[in-house]
């Protein structure tokens, strides 16, 4: 009886195939991406992120931005694994739109070997990984191997203060201003942050302004998106 051997040329397709397979999202393009919140469509092309990519958040509003980026896939049924984020504010995560039912936190595995195994288990199990400053102990070689596995498996990583994992999409908060707080009166009502996006697949630096967070904790767009030089954006993909 001839056994059917999996053709190696199809392996990448198999590995990249989505786990959040739901009726209505069966087209190949949708399977290979995870949707972000609609507000990010001004910044990220198609408003979705390629499976297997690493999104690095830096700058003043990095944490809020990371939560907002995780919120889109989370609302579509993806599980979010927060690793090395022992002090993640759950109220802020819930306000940003992350579904707490599908949030798991792994604190401090300890040795580099355990980090590698725990992260590998997370990559296998969760569609979105939030990698925090607690992951600084991970060695460069380990991180590179893990990111290769991430690409093969088709998960997405969002990093805050964890440069060791690199970044296909780099979100940098270039300026951030809190509003609502006076000199002894008022209360913080929101922060206007300018986010610049660079990366290998982003030919030109893109910029957009967001309320990060707005008065109810969600992310919102501020006015129209602006591009750095006066070159009109070309639709890609």
């Amino acid at each position: 009886m001839p056994a059917r051997v999996v053709n190696p040329t199809h392996l990448s397709d198999l590995a990249g195939r989505g786990l959040v397979t739901r009726a209505g999202s069966s087209t190949a393009a949708q399977d290979r991406t995870l949707p972000l919140l609609p507000v990010f469509s001004s910044l990220v092309s198609q408003g979705a992120v390629q499976r297997g990519s690493v999104m690095a958040c830096t700058g003043g509003a990095a944490m809020s931005l990371a939560l907002a980026l995780a919120a889109g896939p989370s609302q579509q049924g993806a599980w979010v694994g927060a690793i090395g984020m022992a002090s993640l504010g759950l109220a802020a995560a819930a306000e940003a739109g992350v579904v707490l039912e599908r949030l798991v936190s792994v604190i401090e595995p300890g040795s580099d070997h355990l980090w590698a195994e725990a992260l590998a288990a997370c990559i296998d199990g969760f569609d979105v990984l939030l990698l925090g400053p607690g992951t600084q102990q991970v060695r460069t070689g380990t991180a590179r191997r893990l990111m290769a596995r991430l690409r093969a498996r088709g998960a997405v990583a969002i990093t805050v203060g964890a440069p060791v994992f690199g970044g296909d999409l780099r979100f940098e908060c270039t300026s951030a201003t809190w509003l609502g707080l006076g000199d002894g009166h008022g209360v913080a009502q929101g922060r206007v942050a300018e986010v610049a996006l660079t990366g290998r697949r982003v030919p030109q630096t893109r910029r957009a302004e967001f309320w990060l967070p707005s008065a109810d904790g969600q992310v919102r767009a501020v006015g129209a998106p602006a591009t750095a030089p006066v070159v009109p954006l070309r639709r890609t993909g």
């Binding site: 959040v20 397979t21 739901r22 949030l103 401090e108 288990a121 199990g125």
Partner: peptide
């Protein structure tokens, strides 16, 4: 339940076995 839930629940069981139950938390 979705397939993603199934994978995640299994991943959690594996993580608990790997790093200990006090290190794997849910809200």
């Amino acid at each position: 339940r979705t397939q993603a839930d199934d994978w995640a629940v299994r991943a959690v069981a594996r993580l608990v076995a790997l790093v200990g139950e006090q290190q794997v938390l849910v809200p």
